[in-house]
Lab assay of single mutants.
Amino acid sequence: MASQGTKRSYEQMETDGERQNATEIRASVGKMIGGIGRFYIQMCTELKLSDYEGRLIQNSLTIERMVLSAFDERRNKYLEEHPSAGKDPKKTGGPIYRRVNGKWMRELILYDKEEIRRIWRQANNGDDATAGLTHMMIWHSNLNDATYQRTRALVRTGMDPRMCSLMQGSTLPRRSGAAGAAVKGVGTMVMELVRMIKRGINDRNFWRGENGRKTRIAYERMCNILKGKFQTAAQKAMMDQVRESRNPGNAEFEDLTFLARSALILRGSVAHKSCLPACVYGPAVASGYDFEREGYSLVGIDPFRLLQNSQVYSLIRPNENPAHKSQLVWMACHSAAFEDLRVLSFIKGTKVLPRGKLSTRGVQIASNENMETMESSTLELRSRYWAIRTRSGGNTNQQRASAGQISIQPTFSVQRNLPFDRTTIMAAFNGNTEGRTSDMRTEIIRMMESARPEDVSFQGRGVFELSDEKAASPIVPSFDMSNEGSYFFGDNAEEYDN
């Protein structure tokens, strides 16, 4: 783990906690998980779902989305002020799938948001429990990260689609708070800032007046979040320049895209947490497990152990491969979309394939898809080993990566060399080191050039047997250095459309 220093740990961010010791953190995270579980059980009762239907990941996603929508204050306010045809701002819903006479049927349900809020609060001892809501947002974000390569979004903001390893959390809503900021990748933060800068260039009043003052505060806050992700002084200094700019424009845009590229080699610290679907927490609570009393951590053995003992089902389209669908969801559960496939294969105990080789589309089923041909199958979400999630980018030494994705962002704290394609990355730096950030740029390029592919990161860190909950005997895996390590390699994943 990167030293926490003055930073709060993510469990504290996750639970809005002030400084807590490890036991208190485990208890408050457990409380959050228990609340999600209780809410899910109650919703299944309301909807009269069978046990099997309640364990269907598509039903879980609909129920999670309903509660997130019920608590989305800004959108609710907007919907009330701008009524649109056929949208009731006070209601929320989605597809629920039921097994009827041996076939899967889709039923569109509609609930009062007020009623959903009441059920959620009741499951969370009367609190709004925003930490639990954020947790579900991060699960949705991790699922998107594993399912889609955001080529269009990258290109629109002047970045290269091969930089997708920097895009963790790119679909997280803005209201996801400190826990959300911690899991956002460098590219995601750059993209958010670039969008602001572009608006400022096109709209003279963007930075002016009372609204402009708020915009400015948001801009500086985002700059500080991004600065905190960088691990070298030169990158941090460049972020200070971007933040202090009187009138952010093209120079800042250039600096930010430069920094994003540099992060492929001088990786930023991005938190990883295993956020599971509500249909995993519900049955665990129903079986009598007391998360608050037992304590829970999002970055240790607990999620692995929970998945070892969970039964989750998914709808499967006619030509999809259930094992591939399982891999997709497994990666999402562990926030591992940008991790090295060699490491993932070792931990999972079966070969993890790149996205383009998977015969599976996303987990969600569109409303126009034919239910007649839908089957369902068990998702295999178990693992051979477990490993500690990392909050750091690993040290800054790398190795060759593949054509589709030119770097990785480690999820697990496991000893290995970190793949990246130096030639491709360095070719993108057209040696432009003039301007006010020239000395920093020169320094950053120097550090990137001296990074050695064969150097090892996370020295001495290994994986653990599932029986080793105290992480007492690390097993340090050895990897084939020459092997392909990137998930979005030469990829044809669908595009994420909101």
Rank of each mutant, 00 (worst) to 15 (best):
M1V: 09
M1T: 12
A2L: 00
S3F: 15
S3T: 15
T6K: 00
R8P: 10
R8I: 00
S9C: 08
S9W: 00
Y10W: 05
E14R: 02
T15N: 11
D16N: 11
D16V: 08
G17E: 07
E18S: 08
Q20C: 14
A22H: 12
A22N: 10
A22G: 15
T23W: 13
T23A: 12
E24A: 06
E24P: 01
I25C: 11
R26G: 07
S28L: 13
K31H: 15
M32C: 04
G34E: 11
G35V: 12
R38K: 03
F39W: 15
Q42H: 09
T45S: 13
T45M: 13
T45R: 01
Y52D: 01
E53K: 12
L56A: 12
L56W: 11
L56N: 08
S60C: 15
T62S: 13
I63L: 14
I63H: 01
V67M: 13
L68N: 05
L68S: 06
S69E: 05
R74T: 07
R74K: 14
R75S: 12
R75A: 04
K77L: 11
K77N: 12
Y78G: 03
Y78V: 06
Y78E: 02
L79W: 11
H82N: 10
H82D: 08
P83T: 12
P83A: 08
A85G: 15
K87I: 12
K87P: 00
D88S: 15
P89F: 02
P89T: 06
K90T: 15
K90Y: 03
T92L: 02
P95I: 12
P95K: 07
I96F: 11
Y97E: 10
R99H: 05
V100H: 03
N101F: 00
M105N: 02
R106H: 15
R106I: 11
E107D: 12
L108G: 13
L108M: 10
Y111M: 11
Y111G: 03
Y111H: 12
E114S: 13
E114H: 10
E115K: 09
I116M: 11
I116D: 06
A123N: 11
N124D: 11
N124T: 07
N125V: 15
G126F: 00
D127W: 12
D128Y: 13
A129T: 14
A131N: 05
G132P: 10
L133S: 03
H135T: 12
H135L: 05
M136G: 00
M137E: 02
W139R: 09
W139A: 03
H140D: 06
S141V: 11
N142P: 07
N144G: 15
D145L: 02
A146H: 02
Y148I: 03
Y148A: 01
Q149V: 07
R150E: 03
R150L: 04
T151Y: 01
A153G: 09
A153T: 14
V155Y: 05
T157Q: 13
T157P: 01
G158C: 11
G158S: 15
G158T: 02
M159T: 06
M163P: 00
M163K: 04
C164D: 00
S165T: 07
S165Q: 00
S165P: 15
G169A: 12
S170P: 05
S170T: 12
T171G: 04
P173R: 12
P173W: 09
R174E: 09
R174I: 09
G177Q: 10
A178M: 00
A179F: 01
G180V: 06
G180P: 02
A181F: 06
A181Q: 14
A182V: 09
K184L: 07
K184D: 01
V186I: 15
V186T: 06
M189N: 07
M191H: 08
E192K: 11
L193N: 04
R195H: 02
R195I: 11
M196F: 06
M196N: 05
I197S: 04
K198E: 12
R199H: 10
G200K: 09
N202M: 07
N205A: 10
R208C: 02
G209F: 13
E210C: 05
R213V: 00
K214H: 08
Y219H: 12
E220A: 11
N224S: 15
N224T: 05
N224W: 09
F230H: 07
Q231F: 00
A234D: 09
A234T: 15
A234I: 03
Q235H: 14
K236A: 02
A237G: 14
M238T: 08
M239W: 09
M239F: 01
D240V: 15
D240H: 09
V242E: 10
R243F: 05
R243A: 13
E244P: 04
S245G: 14
R246A: 01
N247S: 14
N247W: 04
P248G: 07
P248D: 06
G249S: 03
E252R: 01
F253N: 04
E254M: 10
T257W: 05
T257I: 14
L259V: 15
L259W: 09
A260M: 07
A263Y: 05
A263L: 06
L264Q: 06
L264D: 03
L266N: 08
L266R: 10
R267H: 15
S269R: 00
V270C: 05
A271Y: 00
A271W: 00
A271F: 03
K273P: 06
P277R: 10
A284R: 09
F291R: 01
E294S: 12
G295L: 05
Y296N: 14
Y296W: 12
S297G: 13
L298C: 09
G300R: 07
G300L: 01
L306E: 05
L306A: 06
L307E: 03
N309C: 01
N309G: 11
N309F: 08
S310Q: 14
S310F: 11
Q311N: 00
V312Y: 01
I316P: 00
P318G: 12
N319H: 11
E320C: 06
N321S: 08
P322A: 13
A323S: 07
H324N: 12
H324F: 02
H324S: 12
H324P: 09
Q327Y: 02
Q327G: 05
L328P: 07
L328Y: 04
M331P: 04
M331C: 04
M331T: 09
A336Q: 06
A336M: 08
A337R: 00
A337P: 15
E339Q: 11
D340G: 09
R342Y: 14
L344T: 14
L344W: 05
S345M: 05
S345C: 12
S345G: 08
F346I: 13
F346L: 07
K348I: 09
G349I: 02
G349P: 04
T350Q: 00
K351P: 05
V352P: 00
L353T: 01
L353M: 01
L353S: 00
P354I: 01
R355L: 05
R355M: 06
T360D: 03
R361I: 09
G362S: 01
G362L: 03
G362P: 07
A366N: 06
N368Y: 08
E369D: 12
M371S: 13
M374N: 05
S376M: 15
S377C: 14
T378S: 15
E380G: 10
R382I: 07
R389W: 12
R391E: 01
S392D: 02
S392Q: 04
S392Y: 04
G393M: 04
T396W: 08
N397C: 03
N397F: 02
Q398V: 08
Q398E: 00
Q399C: 05
A403W: 00
A403R: 02
G404M: 05
Q405Y: 02
I408W: 00
I408L: 15
T411F: 08
T411S: 10
V414T: 09
Q415T: 05
Q415L: 06
R416T: 09
L418Y: 02
P419Q: 10
D421N: 12
A427T: 07
A427E: 10
A427Y: 03
F429G: 03
F429V: 03
N430A: 13
G435C: 07
R436F: 02
S438P: 07
S438K: 00
M440E: 13
T442A: 06
I444R: 06
R446W: 09
M447L: 09
M448N: 12
M448T: 15
A451G: 11
R452K: 14
R452L: 04
R452C: 14
P453F: 03
E454Q: 13
S457H: 09
F458H: 07
G460P: 00
G460S: 10
R461V: 00
R461Y: 03
G462C: 05
A471Q: 02
A471W: 06
P474G: 12
I475T: 12
I475A: 03
M481W: 11
Y487H: 14
F488W: 10
G490H: 05
G490W: 07
D491T: 07
E494G: 09
Y496Q: 06
N498W: 03
